[in-house]
Nucleic acid binder design. Sequence first.
DNA 1: ACCGTGACGGTAT
DNA 2: TATACCGCCACGG
Length: 126
Amino acid sequence: MDASLVRPASIDDTDRRILAAVAAVPAGRVASYGQVAALAGLPRGARRVARALRRAPSGTALPWHRIVGADGRIAIPPGDRHREIQIARLRAEAVTVDGGRVAMARFRWRPDLDAWLWGPDRAAPR
DNA sequence: ACCGTGACGGTAT
DNA sequence: TATACCGCCACGG
């Protein structure tokens, strides 16, 4: 058997770490591509994160919509329907999106702060 | 192997 | 705050 048929080279272990990091972002908060990369152990892997999400199946349960640019911008280019989907999903979680961007000072995920406010293993507040 | 491109990011202006 | 550059990394022609 060709392992590539079961575990395509297009989705390696690095991608798995990236997806795991994305899955860790709680509802109502957002993380930047670079932040996710750092969590996945890829200091300069922001673009790698973007690639992983771009390739993820559109029906995935992954909270990919919680990932935005470091400055809060919705990074998906206009014209791609996923851009509107992301905005709608964020708003559904009470995350404000103005002028195509999220106020990072208010919605950026801070794992340490959440732990301090709510304790471990608990969803973040809005 | 070369080169353009991008769901990026940090710095300078 | 916005724009311009440039470094970075992987992909595809």
